[in-house]
Amino acid sequence: MKHKNIIILSLLFTTAICSQNMSQNAGSSLFSDYKASRVGDAITIIVVESSQASNNAETKTGRSSNLSLSGGFDVNNKTSSSGNATLSTGNDFSGSGSTKTVGVVKTKISATIDSVLSNGNLVIKGSRKISINGEEQMIYIKGIVRPSDIAADNSVLSYNISEAEIVFEGSGIIDNAQKPGWLTKLFHWLF
């Protein structure tokens, strides 16, 4: 009996020392899904952004004025001649303008956890460079993600990122063709 107690105590002691820490070994556990939560962990950002803005303005003004004079004179109770003078002025203005902007962006980009804030939220940063036939497109993303917004496949929708900065930049022949030339820039600067 004494030997059984020693064996049971040694098993309990070994189990207590070698117990599994679920937060450190979640990737190898059979009972939990691994979610990105530590610095350096990868996370997939699904960028689904759409924006729409419109502004309309219309102005109409008008002013008109008329001045009329008429008169005559008599000589020996006879009306001899009369004169009329008329002066008219007018001013009309009509102006209108409208702007409309629509933007839709859909892409996926991988990012890494840069730091973990004291409240558990994750600061993420990521970039991707795509080059096709001399055209380069850079995509940058950064922001703060709540751990509860991370799906089981370690993806986050972009509208769940607070303080999100999503930047698309391009360079190449098409980008250069969309910019005004130096002569056009000079004329705009002068006039």
Rank of each mutant, 00 (worst) to 15 (best):
residue 140 Y to R: 02
residue 22 M to V: 12
residue 137 Q to A: 07
residue 163 E to P: 09
residue 31 F to Y: 00
residue 96 S to F: 00
residue 79 T to Q: 13
residue 99 T to R: 09
residue 169 E to Q: 11
residue 128 R to P: 01
residue 188 H to K: 06
residue 27 G to C: 05
residue 160 N to W: 14
residue 100 K to I: 08
residue 58 E to G: 07
residue 10 S to R: 10
residue 136 E to Q: 11
residue 188 H to P: 00
residue 172 G to L: 05
residue 98 S to Q: 09
residue 154 N to S: 15
residue 170 G to D: 01
residue 15 T to N: 01
residue 137 Q to H: 04
residue 49 E to T: 06
residue 175 D to L: 01
residue 152 A to V: 15
residue 165 E to A: 12
residue 155 S to Y: 02
residue 140 Y to L: 10
residue 90 G to M: 09
residue 14 T to Q: 05
residue 108 K to I: 08
residue 8 I to D: 01
residue 78 K to A: 13
residue 68 S to E: 08
residue 184 T to G: 02
residue 102 V to F: 08
residue 28 S to P: 04
residue 21 N to G: 05
residue 104 V to F: 05
residue 33 D to V: 07
residue 174 I to S: 01
residue 36 A to S: 15
residue 108 K to M: 10
residue 44 T to H: 12
residue 174 I to Y: 00
residue 37 S to V: 15
residue 16 A to N: 06
residue 173 I to T: 01
residue 65 S to G: 08
residue 98 S to E: 07
residue 136 E to G: 10
residue 36 A to Y: 03
residue 55 N to L: 14
residue 29 S to L: 01
residue 98 S to L: 05
residue 68 S to Y: 02
residue 171 S to Y: 03
residue 101 T to Q: 14
residue 46 I to L: 08
residue 185 K to S: 02
residue 187 F to V: 13
residue 21 N to M: 08
residue 73 F to P: 07
residue 47 V to L: 06
residue 94 S to A: 10
residue 127 S to R: 06
residue 68 S to L: 01
residue 49 E to K: 05
residue 165 E to C: 06
residue 162 S to F: 03
residue 13 F to V: 11
residue 86 T to V: 11
residue 93 F to M: 08
residue 63 R to M: 11
residue 96 S to R: 01
residue 108 K to P: 04
residue 16 A to D: 05
residue 172 G to V: 14
residue 42 A to F: 06
residue 156 V to A: 14
residue 119 N to E: 03
residue 62 G to H: 03
residue 46 I to W: 00
residue 117 L to Y: 07
residue 141 I to E: 03
residue 4 K to V: 07
residue 140 Y to S: 04
residue 65 S to R: 07
residue 146 R to E: 11
residue 166 I to A: 08
residue 23 S to F: 13
residue 77 N to P: 05
residue 142 K to S: 15
residue 113 I to A: 06
residue 159 Y to G: 03
residue 46 I to Q: 07
residue 53 A to N: 12
residue 132 I to C: 04
residue 132 I to R: 10
residue 130 I to Y: 06
residue 185 K to A: 01
residue 98 S to T: 12
residue 112 T to M: 04
residue 29 S to V: 02
residue 84 N to P: 01
residue 99 T to E: 11
residue 58 E to W: 00
residue 191 F to A: 03
residue 96 S to W: 00
residue 167 V to H: 10
residue 64 S to I: 13
residue 22 M to Q: 08
residue 144 I to C: 11
residue 126 G to H: 02
residue 85 A to Y: 12
residue 61 T to R: 09
residue 11 L to I: 15
residue 103 G to P: 03
residue 180 P to H: 00
residue 87 L to C: 02
residue 172 G to M: 03
residue 161 I to Y: 12
residue 144 I to K: 06
residue 137 Q to G: 02
residue 148 S to R: 08
residue 59 T to H: 00
residue 100 K to A: 10
residue 107 T to Q: 09
residue 115 S to F: 05
residue 41 D to K: 03
residue 125 K to N: 12
